[in-house]
């Protein structure tokens, strides 16, 4: 797939010497990373390597212990205003979908645009319907999440995040909780999004997807970036011994 990344633009994400500890557990040990607008980055690594934590630091679902995160020119710090500004620009998709069970599909999608962005209901519904068309679930607008399959729920969750018109989308193992036959429909939506030029960070175990869609693969191990580069290099000619072992295990 052709890259939409803008190599010479100002990075949209800058992470400088990021550390994160949970009590005694030092999960991130100095991560440095930049992401260009339009770039698709796949984060891979074994569980406990810190890849999900890194993702969750980017919209402050985790506080950071040390270091700096700058997103679209806004520095993430303790100020609530900045956090909410950044969260509006950064969409997130979770492993467990986390749709709101007491709201219909449409209500799930229009909730934040109406309450946070103060859009009119009419406008929010219009955007939501366009997004539902895009993920192929327009006919489910009045359904409650429990009645939907995991794949459908995840597609709705993607639409919900997109309704905020984010500049960056974070995906935290978006297909890990899905039955194998439902993975494809979710990856299809993500592939489409990448093609449209969305900046995406995807924590994933789907190496096929990483190879096909990502501009860059980052392999994390023990809280640091151990190896990174274009997928064909990192996934076919890994330099690090550990990455070779990791990829070997997946096969």
């Amino acid at each position: 797939m052709q890259s939409n990344a803008l190599p010479n633009a100002e990075p949209i994400i800058k992470v400088i010497n990021l550390h994160k500890s949970f009590g005694d557990l030092h999960v991130l040990r100095g991560v440095n990373m930049t992401v260009q607008p339009g770039e698709v980055v796949a984060l891979i690594g074994s569980s406990g390597s810190g890849k999900s934590t890194l993702l969750r630091c980017l919209n402050r679902l985790e506080t950071i212990s040390e270091g700096q995160i700058i997103i679209d020119g806004i520095e993430l710090n303790q100020s609530t205003k900045n956090i909410n500004r950044i969260r509006r620009e950064v969409g997130m998709v979770f492993q467990q979908f986390n749709l709101f069970p007491h709201m219909t599909v449409l209500e799930n999608i229009v909730e934040a645009p109406i309450r946070v962005l103060k859009k009119s209901r009419e406008e929010a519904v219009k955007t939501a319907m366009a997004l539902l068309e895009k993920v192929g679930l327009a006919d489910k607008k009045d359904t409650y999440p429990r009645k939907l399959s995991g794949g459908q729920q995840q597609r709705i969750a993607i639409a919900r995040a997109l309704a905020m018109n984010p500049k960056i989308m974070l995906f935290d193992e978006p297909t890990s909780a899905l039955d194998p036959e439902l993975v494809g429909e979710v990856l299809q939506v993500m592939r489409q999004l990448a093609r449209e030029g969305m900046t995406m960070l995807v924590v994933t175990h789907e190496m096929g997807f990483a190879r096909e869609v990502a501009d860059r693969v980052i392999y994390m191990n023990n809280g640091v970036i151990e190896e990174e580069g274009p997928p064909e290099e990192v996934l076919t000619r890994p330099k690090s011994e550990r990455l070779r072992a990791f990829l070997g295990h997946l096969k």
């Binding site: 609530t80 969260r87 946070v116 919900r160 905020m164």
Partner: peptide
């Protein structure tokens, strides 16, 4: 209420 519900709302910029 599962923590994921709150995180999803936070990630949508809700206070």
């Amino acid at each position: 209420i599962p923590k994921g519900q709150i995180e999803a709302a936070q990630s949508l910029g809700m206070g």
